[in-house]
């Protein structure tokens, strides 16, 4: 269960990071974001990814937590890539 939770947190983090990129804004929010919103999305995304590390290291200990966290990060990033492919207008 903890895996699903942390992957979800990472995915939200990456979603924010992707939304901060011009290329993906049209697919994700259907408009361009303002500079302020971009900064907020970046900070929020980074904060969520860090929070995921905190969750993982509390659940598994620091050593195994770091390892599991890199796994969760990559899985979540992959999910966002898949989401962007699906949301891309054909």
């Amino acid at each position: 269960m903890i895996h699903v939770l942390v992957i979800a947190v990472c995915a939200m983090g990456f979603l924010a990071l992707a939304a901060a990129q011009k290329r993906h804004q049209r697919d994700l929010v259907r408009r361009t974001l303002t500079a302020r919103e971009i900064r907020a999305a970046r900070t929020g995304g980074a904060a969520l990814l860090t929070f995921a590390l905190v969750l993982d290291s509390r659940a598994f200990g620091l050593a195994l937590g770091l390892l599991t966290w890199t796994g969760h990060l990559a899985l979540a990033a992959g999910a966002i890539v898949a989401l962007l492919v699906v949301r891309k207008p054909a």
Binding site: F14, L17, A18, Q21, R23, H24, A77, I80, V81, L84, V85, K88
Partner: peptide, 9 residues
Amino acid sequence: FTDFFTLRL
């Protein structure tokens, strides 16, 4: 970083 999420099919 720019291409981090990019997959154009």
